[in-house]
Design a protein around this nucleic acid. Structure first.
Lengths: 235, 235
DNA sequence: GATACCAAATCGTCATACTTTTAGCGGCGC
DNA sequence: GCGCCGCTAAAAGTATGACGATTTGGTATC
C-alpha cells in the first residue's frame, strides 16, 4: 500500500514535516537542497515532490522553488495526509474533524447497509457483534479493538457506497489512535456494546431507521468523549 | 490548481481512461510504451505514473509493468478522480455515491454551521438565499446555479470542519453536472428555494436542529430526483 | 522616478547509462 | 514425472549531465 523506493522514503520525511506544521505554509524548498539533505538524485526528489503536488500540499514554481501550500488546499481526505496529521501535532484538530465526519457518515451508512447489505455481510456483522461482546467480557482490549474496527468497516462497506467504504481504514486509524493515546483508561462500556449489537440486529432485520439511530448514538457518544478528553488535555 | 506541464497532460489522458474503465483493472502498461505513445521522455512518464500511484489507481511492479489497480483501492475522494469519473462512463455510479454522501454530510454541516458560522458567513448565506430567490424568479438559470453552488459551499465551509469544507468544490461539480446533463428541464422549484431560505435563516438564528432538517430535505430531494432520472435513463 | 531590458536562479525536459528486482524458463537431481 | 534451484532477460528504479523555459529582481537608461 505504501509508496515504495527512495521517493517513498523522502515522502515519509517531508509529508509528516509539512502536515505537522514543522515546515510552515509558505515555506520554500529547493530541489537541490532536498537532494543534498537526503542524499538522493533529482529524479527521486522530483517524483516525491510530484506526489506531494498531487496532494496539493506543495506547488513548485520556477525561479522560486517548491512552496508549501496553505492547509486549506490540501487533499484532506487523502489517507496519507490523514495519517500524517494524526501522527503529528495536528492530531487534535484531525480527530475532531474525523469525529464530525463519522457522526455524519456512519449513521447514513448503517441505514444504507440495512437496505443493501449482502447475506454474507449481515452474517459477518452478527458474528462481529458477538465477538465484541465476548472480548469485552474477557477484557481482551486488543481483540476488542480489532473487532470494533472490523465492525465499523463492515458497516461502511455494506452500505454499498464506495465512498463510504473507503472511510473504513480511516475510521480504523481513529479507533486505533484512540485506544493507544487514551492509555486504554476504561474497559469497553456495556452500553456501547449493546448499541453495536442493536446496529447489527437492525441491519440484519433490514430496519434502516433503527440501525441509523443506534449508530448515531454510538458515534455521537464517541465524539462527546473525544471533545471531553481534548477539552481537558489541550486547554 | 491543475498539475502543470507534460506530466499534467499525460495525467489528463491516462486518468480519465482508467477512471472510465477504458483501461480496465488488471491492465498492464509499460513505461516505454507510454513514452512512445505520447512522445515524452522517461522522466515525464514516471512523474505522471507516480501521481497515479499516489491516487492508488496504478501500481508499478518490476519485471511486470504498471498495473491498473481495482477500483476499490482508488482514492475515491481525490477531486481529480471524482472529476474523471463524473466525465466518463462511470458518471451514474459516481453521482449516486456523491448523492448519498451529500445526504450524510450536508445536514450535519448545516447543523454545525448554525453553531459555528462567523457573522460574515451568516450574512453571506442570507444574501445568497435572496439571490437564489431573485434569480429563480427571473429564470436566470446560469446565475441561479452559480449562487446555488456558492450557497452549499458556504454552508460546508461555515461548518468549521475542514473536511466538510473540502467537499464544497465536489458538490459544485455535482450541481453543475446536474443542470448540464438534465438539459435544464425545469426552472428551480419554489419549494426548494423556500428550503434554502429556511436553512439560511436557521443558521443565522443559530437553530441547528432546523437548519439540519431543512438541509436534509433539500439533499434528500436531490437524491430522489437523481435516482428517478438514473432509473429512467439507464434501465 | 518610471520603464525597459538583461541576467541569474530555479524548475522542466530530455537522453543515456547503470542498478536492482523478479517472473519465467530450463536444467538438474531425486 | 515432480519439484527444486539457479539463470536470464525484461522491466522499473536511480543517477547524471546537458539544455530549455520561465520568472524574478536588479540595473541602466531615459
Amino acid at each position: 500500500m505504501e509508496i515504495q523506493g527512495l521517493p517513498g522514503r523522502l515522502l515519509a520525511e517531508l509529508g509528516p514535516a509539512i502536515a505537522s506544521g514543522e515546515v510552515p505554509e509558505g515555506a520554500v524548498l529547493r530541489s537541490e537542497e532536498l537532494e543534498e539533505r537526503f542524499g538522493v538524485s533529482r529524479t527521486v526528489v522530483r517524483e516525491a515532490v510530484r506526489i506531494l503536488e498531487g496532494m496539493r500540499m506543495v506547488a513548485p514554481r520556477r525561479r522560486v522553488g517548491i512552496t508549501v501550500q496553505p492547509k486549506s488546499t490540501w487533499d484532506v481526505f487523502d489517507p496519507l495526509v490523514i495519517r500524517w496529521r494524526l501522527a503529528g501535532s495536528d492530531r487534535p484538530a484531525q480527530l475532531r474533524s474525523l469525529g464530525s465526519l463519522r457522526v455524519a457518515v456512519e449513521p447514513a451508512a448503517a441505514a444504507l447497509a440495512a437496505q443493501h447489505a449482502s447475506d454474507d455481510e449481515r452474517r459477518e456483522l452478527g458474528s462481529l457483534a458477538v465477538e465484541l461482546t465476548m472480548t469485552a467480557r474477557a477484557a481482551d482490549l486488543e481483540a476488542f479493538l480489532r473487532h470494533d474496527i472490523a465492525f465499523h468497516a463492515t458497516v461502511l462497506k455494506a452500505s454499498g457506497n464506495e465512498m463510504f467504504a473507503h472511510l473504513g481504514d480511516t475510521v480504523g486509524a481513529v479507533l486505533t489512535g484512540r485506544t493507544e493515546y487514551d492509555l486504554m483508561p476504561h474497559q469497553p462500556e456495556p452500553y456501547a456494546i449493546r448499541l453495536h449489537r442493536e446496529v447489527a440486529e437492525a441491519i440484519c432485520a433490514g430496519d434502516a431507521e433503527h440501525a441509523e439511530q443506534a449508530m448515531r448514538t454510538i458515534v455521537k457518544g464517541a465524539l462527546e468523549e473525544l471533545d471531553q478528553q481534548l477539552g481537558l488535555g489541550a486547554p
